[in-house]
Design a protein around this nucleic acid. Structure first.
Length: 469
RNA sequence: UCCGGCAUAGCUCAGCGGUAGAGCGGGUGGCUGUUAACCACUAGGUCGUAGGUUCGAAUCCUACUGCCGGAGCCA
């Protein structure tokens, strides 16, 4: 495809800068298209740093002052301007790059005047969030979103290679009892009609509808047909959470395995994390090195450790004992039967295990109804995978497959069997042990890149009072 | 939602009762196979919004808004 006004005949293919920089063989004359990052002028020529997003690095183009149009173009060649450039790829005379382009023809496609917000200096993340439409053009966000893309691909590859079937579970759900937090209401009712008596039956779906907070229950139905499935899609929580780890819209991966218990569940979870990090280390080396240099100096060592070292596994009961025996004074008391607080989870992963740790067999009273009851009568087969710096990255469980136990648990949680008739049918017809978990995709990207705020690993973050762009 | 902090030039910040500053970015000129290039000059601001205290407020007080950090909820 040749853009209008191209300076070269269509026969000459555009090359991505990544390919130009990686090429082992002489390339001769090539055409590239991208955005100016910075310009440095000499008396008789200018250096242009051009980036097209294909990789972190820029192509240095040497633009000779004797070329036609040089003087007119120069005033337009500011940071942000889009250009098409042709020229020969030659060995660089300077330090810092092995090759560069000797420009033969240059065309300004779209000028970026001096009001362009991105300067060739470091900006704060807070400022860049205000220009979320332009921040992908920075080094950091370029690296983060290339890594995010690769991780997404690696997740599909991981499951597809293991025979898992990808299921698209619904985004809109009519069951308001998924039990994973506040839900966003979906409705076509407006004004007085919304509040009127019996309004729900006149709504689009004839009942109350919401955005999904989890595809798990629907995922279970497919696991009980395809044995191993996974979902990978957007998830919505209307919680008024204002933290670096929470977003109202985020992406989640939820595998569900039939004929699988909690141990098998933990194995898949741990293997998945390790495989994904290995994949990123191999395929995103340049971007990860950048993150290691400018985001978190300890990043690469930590990733290698996570990829190689087996994860610690500690039962909830043992974890409580470890916390009580730690000699640490916590703000919140450690009590068996209570939730582990952030400070407790941090101690377990950052100080005790010094790496990822899986906590399993939680008290039944603090977990949802669908988790499988253990024989001790007081815990359920649940697990949380905690990683240093982020906390919970995976939460999962073996599901209660015994109809009588499940209905009893629903009664204890005050839930109506009628609302879950199809979920209970799975236990009525060919029930089978099964287990699964949810992996927060953004938290994974945070782990891999070292970026500490979820708003900086998702293109356009949705958080309380913020849905711009 | 709770606790704490912050809001000054396009960006990053200094100034903390007495005429609004620097670096970067922009412009002009110079220099150099440069690479966060360098040197000189130059333009650029209702100091978040609304009240209040004071002879005088960017500076002190109050409210509001937004953002940041921590906590809760969780992925």
């Amino acid at each position: 495809m040749s853009p209008a006004g191209s300076v070269l005949p269509p026969a000459m293919q555009r090359m991505r800068i990544k390919e130009v920089l990686a090429s082992e063989t002489p390339l001769g004359e090539v055409r590239i298209q991208g955005w100016i990052r910075t310009r440095r002028d000499s008396k008789t020529f200018s250096f242009l740093e051009i980036n097209d997003g294909s990789c972190l690095g820029c192509l240095q183009a040497v633009y000779d002052a004797t070329l036609p149009g040089y003087a007119e173009n120069l005033s337009l060649l500011l940071t942000g301007t889009s250009v098409e450039v042709t020229g020969e790829i030659v060995r660089s005379q300077g330090k810092g790059q092995t090759r560069e382009m000797q420009v033969r023809g240059l065309q300004v496609i779209g000028a970026a005047p001096e009001t362009y917000p991105l300067q060739k200096k470091r900006h704060t993340r807070e400022f860049l969030r205000e220009i979320a439409h332009l921040r992908p053009r920075t080094n950091l966000f370029g690296a983060v979103f290339r890594i995010r893309s690769r991780l997404s691909y690696a997740i599909h590859r991981f499951f597809q290679e293991r025979g898992f079937v990808h299921v698209h579970t619904p985004i809109i759900t009519a069951s308001d009892c998924e039990g994973a937090g506040e839900m966003f209401r979906v409705t076509t009712l407006e004004g007085a009609g919304f509040a009127a008596p019996g309004a729900e039956s006149r709504d689009f779906f004839g009942k109350r509808a919401f955005l999904t907070v989890s595809g798990q229950l629907e995922g279970e139905t497919f696991a009980c047909a395809f044995s191993d499935i996974y979902t990978f899609g957007p998830t919505f929580r209307a919680e008024n959470s204002n933290t670096a780890r929470h977003a109202a819209e985020f992406w989640m991966i939820e595998p569900e395995m039939a004929f699988c218990d909690l141990t098998g569940d933990m194995e898949i979870a741990e293997t998945l994390i390790q495989e994904l990090i290995r994949d990123a280390l191999e395929h995103c080396a340049e971007d990860l090195a950048f993150c290691g240099e400018f985001v978190d100096p300890g990043l690469l060592d930590r990733l290698r450790l996570i990829a190689e070292q087996p994860f610690a596994r500690i039962s909830y009961t043992d974890a409580v004992g470890i916390l009580l025996g730690s000699g640490k004074t916590f703000e919140y008391p450690v009590v068996w039967g209570h939730h582990l607080q952030t400070e407790h989870e941090r101690y377990l992963s950052e100080e005790h295990a010094k790496g990822p740790v899986t906590i399993f067999d939680y008290p039944a009273a603090i977990k949802p109804f669908y988790m499988r009851q253990n024989e001790d009568g007081r815990t359920v087969a649940a697990m949380d995978l905690l990683v240093p710096g982020i906390g919970e990255i995976i939460g999962g469980s073996q599901r209660e497959e015994r109809l009588d136990r499940l209905t009893a648990a629903m009664q204890a949680h005050g839930l109506s069997e009628n609302d879950y008739w199809w979920y209970l049918d799975l236990r009525r017809y060919g029930t089978v042990a099964h287990a699964g978990f949810g992996l927060g995709f953004e938290r994974l990207v945070m782990l891999v890149t070292g970026v500490e705020n979820i708003r900086d690993v998702i293109p356009f973050p949705r958080t309380p009072r913020n849905a711009d762009f």
